[in-house]
Design a protein around this nucleic acid. Structure first.
Lengths: 150, 150
DNA sequence: ACCATACTTATGGTATATCATGGTAATTTA
DNA sequence: TAAATTACCATGATATACCATAAGTATGGT
């Protein structure tokens, strides 16, 4: 998965990249999006992945714990299912767009089983941050000889 | 899933979000609401889920504990079935509305198999609290391997 | 290697269906 | 019988599904 740039129209509609649609179709699941906790971007994944996460939380045998309660609240309270129409588009809500500061252009970034949607400006900054971070850790990586990420 | 904001009229009527109705219809069960034990909000779920919860409490090993007795009394004494009319609305009682401090706007918050109803002001505060709390505990969550960014 | 053609994908526009909500009638309860 | 509660109707707003065009990409032939 690479990064794809698509237009967002006045109604919040945006084409889900064809590659993404193919994967969703193959998995037979549906797309779920929510505000990232740590970054000004939208995060997305398939519904079954989210359900697995919820099940894990429920199974972590402290049924009445506040933390668990907070987690499910956060995940399910924010997340929303998105179905794409016959042309492959989803409509992002005002809440999500505002959080990611997206106006008319969306940058899709693949992240393994998840993906993120950024505004071009924020993504440029984030990419820069990541590069700097990797460079800073490079000596450590070299010393460890784990060098896949260099 | 998701949060939905609906109006509450002078009689306490409020539309149950369409997604919720769809689920209730699919499960063939009915909605039950009660005052949250820990927060100024209304909690709701399907009737069969509440019955399952009751069974769990009975099966737990401290059968004669006063706390559990109190707990079941509180929840089941308070819980009430709500049927929605042909337009999909329920009428919330004065007791519930007062407890949640709701006057003319209700915020529905999805919680997996349950949901909550908040006043806009209280939900804003609660959401803020949850996000801060979860961020604080993030390292713990990562150690548990419940996913990187959630 | 270049051009023509077919196909997939993205995007603007429009019609349609669904949903929330104010209002009213019917039914129940005190 | 009055008050209150419940069920139904009507409308406006919103979101959803569909159609059409354009742009970009791959494919096959000369």
């Amino acid at each position: 998965m690479d990064t794809v740039i698509n237009k967002v129209d006045s109604k919040g509609r945006v084409s889900l990249p064809a590659d993404y649609r193919a994967i969703v179709k193959e998995l037979g699941s549906e797309i779920v999006c929510y505000r990232s906790l740590v970054s000004p971007c939208i995060e997305g994944c398939t519904e079954d992945l989210l359900e697995k996460l919820a099940a894990e939380i429920e199974d972590s045998n402290d049924f009445f714990s506040q933390t668990q309660d907070d987690l499910t609240n956060l995940i399910f309270g924010d997340a929303k299912r998105f179905t794409f129409d016959s042309t492959g588009r989803i409509v992002l809500s005002e809440k999500l767009l505002k959080h990611a500061q997206i106006k008319d252009t969306a940058v899709f970034v693949g992240k393994g089983r998840k993906f993120q949607i950024w505004s071009p400006e924020n993504w440029a900054k984030e990419e820069e941050r990541i590069r700097a971070e990797v460079l800073k850790k490079r000596p450590v990586l070299n010393a460890r000889k784990t060098g896949e990420n260099a």
